[in-house]
Amino acid sequence: MNELISMGGYAPFIWSAYGFFFITIIILFITNFLRLKKREEILNKINNNRD
């Protein structure tokens, strides 16, 4: 386990690169997902008003 964290002395580089990668793609996913949910809400509202 210790070996995994220390990464042969390259820990700060590897963990920051992997961290940057995953944080960025998760942000990309979440922002687009929230935009989708917003559109669905608007559509529901319009449909409810019609009924």
Partner: peptide, 28 residues
């Protein structure tokens, strides 16, 4: 992917563990 790239694969004999960054850098 993380299991293989961080645990299962051996470190490079020149660059050591730092080449594990390749597994995310090259696909992107």
């Amino acid at each position: 992917g993380l299991y293989f790239s961080l645990l299962q694969s051996p470190p490079d004999y020149i660059q050591g563990d730092s080449m594990r960054i390749m597994y995310i850098h090259v696909p992107s």
